[in-house]
Amino acid sequence: MANSTALYSNITQVSVYSNKNIETVRMALLILCICFCFFLYFLTLILCVYFTTAHIRENTRYVLFVHMLINDTLYLVLVITLFLGALYMVFLPVPLCYFLVSLCTTSFRVTPYNLAVMALERYVAICYPLRHAQLCTPQRSHAAIAIIWAVGFLPCVADFIALSSSVGTKFFSLNVVCSQPGLLKTSEQNTMRSITLVLSFALVGLIIVYTYIRIMLIARKFSSGKSSAFKAGKTVMLHAFQLLLCMTSFTSYLIDTYIKYYLDSLPIINFLLFTCLPRFLSPFIYGVRDEVFRKYIIKWHSSAIALG
């Protein structure tokens, strides 16, 4: 059970630190706050560009990108809240705890699903350019986002049914330190969560590989490395890189298993590197790289400095 729990998220692999580790904890929290502030700054710039530029709001690619950033922000807020609550032993009612954990895990699953849809949008744009305007509209992108969230939330419904059938009503009246292992009461829950996670990443990985191959086959027909197909191929590779970053949570269990006896502060290091860092990088991987967003970000940043 510990295996799949660790694979699913790092937020619960934390304990109360002794005095000798308090400085490490404080330094880690300081780094976390600084990184989160930079993340929010770039997120604010990107959102300002998105909501004040009509043609960007009507572009399916940017709709999906902004949704991913908002989802990453939600995930970071939830995961940091749960991490600090576990770190400082804050007790919450079980219903509230289950809601927060379910929302957090759903948000975690939504990120790779969103990457898959973004890769498919690039695939349609390059392989079926004449149908792109018809298939990839803002309305359809909003429908795709709703479907993504529905699919991401379904495992939580199955998990709640399995949990409710195994525990009495007294369990939901308890106050607990909110953590995912504390809500795993049956082997069925553990199995469902492991299978859902593995299948999700495997399916998304296959979609990204397939779309990249098809796009690059189109790109080979063009001699110029500056063609839209080559650029789309690079974008899909960025999706694959982002998926790989999301999958780094798999390595945290192995690191905790073999190194935890040598490094007491390992849980918080794992939390920073494998849970927070991949989401902190999203605005830089996509927003700063994109020519349209980069132009507007520089403009907004220059205006902010001038007003300051």
Results as ranks from 00 to 15, higher is better:
234 K>L: 13
235 T>H: 10
220 R>D: 09
226 K>I: 13
203 L>D: 10
195 I>P: 09
220 R>N: 08
225 G>E: 08
234 K>S: 12
198 V>K: 09
201 F>G: 00
235 T>G: 15
224 S>H: 03
216 M>A: 02
240 A>N: 07
198 V>F: 15
195 I>C: 11
194 S>Q: 12
228 S>C: 10
216 M>G: 04
231 K>L: 04
193 R>I: 15
240 A>K: 06
229 A>D: 03
193 R>E: 15
212 Y>E: 09
225 G>P: 05
233 G>H: 00
215 I>S: 01
231 K>F: 10
220 R>M: 03
223 S>N: 04
226 K>S: 13
202 A>T: 08
238 L>W: 06
212 Y>R: 11
229 A>C: 03
198 V>C: 13
202 A>F: 13
201 F>H: 11
195 I>W: 11
222 F>M: 08
224 S>Q: 04
212 Y>G: 04
212 Y>I: 00
208 I>D: 02
196 T>L: 08
218 I>T: 08
206 L>W: 06
213 I>F: 09
201 F>A: 10
228 S>H: 06
202 A>S: 14
205 G>C: 03
208 I>P: 01
240 A>Y: 05
207 I>D: 01
207 I>G: 02
203 L>N: 06
195 I>R: 10
212 Y>L: 05
231 K>N: 05
215 I>W: 00
209 V>F: 00
203 L>R: 00
199 L>D: 10
218 I>G: 01
